Amino acid sequence: MKILILGGTGEARELANRLVALGHDVTSSLAGRTQTPKLPEGGLRMGKFGGIPGLSAYLRAAHIDRLVDATHPYAGQISINASAAAQAAGVPLVRYMRPQWTQQVGDDWITVETTAEAAAALPPSADVLLTTGHAWIEQFLERDDCHFVVRLIETPTMPMPRYATLLQTRPPYSLSDEIALMEREEITHLVTKNSGGAQTSAKLEAARRLGVKVIMIARPAYGPALEVASLDEAIAALKLDA
Rank of each mutant, 00 (worst) to 15 (best):
E183C: 12
A229F: 06
G106Y: 04
S176F: 14
W109I: 01
T169E: 15
L175R: 11
E233R: 10
H189F: 00
K203S: 06
D69H: 10
D107G: 03
G133Y: 04
A62K: 12
A229L: 06
N194G: 01
E227W: 01
E138P: 02
E113D: 14
T71L: 07
P161R: 12
A242E: 12
D177W: 09
G196D: 12
I153C: 05
A126L: 09
H63V: 07
E178L: 10
V94Q: 04
V128G: 04
H24Y: 15
A198E: 15
G197W: 08
P224E: 10
R95N: 04
L210A: 13
A135C: 03
A221C: 06
P53H: 05
R18E: 13
G47R: 07
E205Q: 14
P99M: 06
H72N: 04
Q35W: 04
E142D: 14
Q168M: 13
E205F: 01
T200M: 07
E117F: 00
D108T: 12
L167V: 15
T115P: 00
A229N: 11
A16W: 01
H189E: 04
P161I: 11
C146R: 02
M158V: 15
D177F: 07
K2M: 02
R60F: 02
I217M: 01
P92M: 07
P159L: 13
L226H: 14
I5P: 06
H189A: 02
Y96H: 10
T157N: 14
Q139M: 04
V112Y: 02
P123S: 11
G90H: 03
A206I: 10
M182I: 13
Q77Y: 06
E233A: 15
A135L: 09
R143H: 08
A82H: 02
L240V: 11
A86F: 05
